[in-house]
Design a protein around this nucleic acid. Structure first.
Lengths: 205, 205
DNA sequence: CAATGCTTTCAAAATATTTTGAAAGTTGTG
DNA sequence: CACAACTTTCAAAATATTTTGAAAGCATTG
């Protein structure tokens, strides 16, 4: 509304309410990825708009950029703040709140993985353990067929458990990696997919 | 609440319609994980029941085990078959179709990652590239402020692009790793997160 | 080839999720 | 204290997703 493309206003405070085509592409695809990844699409879209904006934006700016209601913007920003992927910033002389995206991607991912995946996986691990425990009586029951059945189930649940533990470690690796600036993992990945021959991928120098 | 362990019927055809408590736990948690991970919860539940069953099960067995409608079972099985995580098996002398879960977890994950994530990420990569391309005009336009704005956006989108490429490589690594029996990745993860012995995953810490 | 037993399809119904916007809440100001 | 200027809340509306079950489709068998 207040923007005036023709006015040679100073760069700092004039607001652009429509996002440029490239930003639209990005916010759309990030929205999708993020949704796919279990969050609300609008979280991804709002984050993207902030991420691509040189200055912090107000809730109203976002409302216009993405044609969302004030409520949706407020709630979504709240979630993004809770996930620590968006920050409030004070713009001096302004009464409104302004928001900026966390721009350190690894930091961001690390935080989210850490809070979300770890909880999820930890819960799965617990449950698998519990399920195995529940098998115990049958494992030493008197019915041979039931015993065999339980044995097989224990075996299979153990596989799931092992897998969950690997997942857990993968997340931990990503998280700790992120703190140390992505080096080891990235190096590992480069080696693993760049050099296509599996001949000797295990001995560095 | 429990099957009839006393039926002297040959193992092949007597049917258990209620699942045991441990299987219920597992199918619930796998359902959740799978949903969380973007599939339908019932896919995870059905797969789990099959995975924990010593014998293949018919659609009807599944219908009873999980209290689903025949349509839901049929559609869900169809999807699971398409993803290659469940197979049809012939039970001799039976007219119905029987189904069994893929039990090689890594193989399964690898297939799914390969088809699904790769497509998703590849699309994101393309889009980021396209978005950067769209910035070109502004990058060499005459308006200095706009130029600076575009420069920053290009920078940021490039970060996303790099991240997407790393993700892509991560998926590729997991996939190729899975084919060669998980060795290198697992070893890497073990080193990275400080666990002890690679081959016997029995002690939690 | 008609009947039977099973499977798939699909439109409608049930559920779940997301968005809206008006009203209530907060905070800074005259 | 009363008045802005914003923000948050939340019940209702809009959407989207999942499930149902009756009917159509198929394949085997007598």
């Amino acid at each position: 509304m207040r923007e005036r493309p023709s006015s040679p206003d100073a760069a700092g405070s004039a607001k652009v309410s429509e996002i440029e085509p490239s930003a639209a592409l990005v916010s759309d695809v990030v929205g999708r990825l993020i949704e796919f990844w279990g969050f609300k699409r609008s979280m991804g879209r709002i984050w993207s708009v902030l991420y691509l904006s040189p200055e912090p934006l107000s809730a109203e700016d976002l409302r216009h950029s993405l044609s969302l209601s004030s409520g949706a913007v407020s709630m979504t920003l709240g979630e993004l703040l809770r996930w620590g992927v968006v920050r409030k910033v004070w713009v001096q002389g302004e009464r409104k709140d302004y928001f900026a995206a966390e721009v350190q991607l690894w930091k961001m991912i690390s935080r989210v993985l850490n809070e979300r995946e770890k909880a999820e996986i930890a819960y799965a691990i617990e449950t698998f353990e519990e399920a195995i425990a529940k098998l115990e009586p049958a494992l030493r029951g008197s019915d041979a067929a039931a015993r065999e059945r339980a044995r097989l189930q224990k075996e299979r649940i153990s596989q799931l458990l092992e897998l969950a533990r690997i997942g857990h470690r993968l997340v931990e690796t990503l998280v700790s990696t992120a703190k140390l600036d992505a080096e080891p993992l990235v190096r590992f990945l480069l080696r693993a997919s760049g050099a296509s021959s599996p001949s000797s991928p295990s001995s560095p120098h």
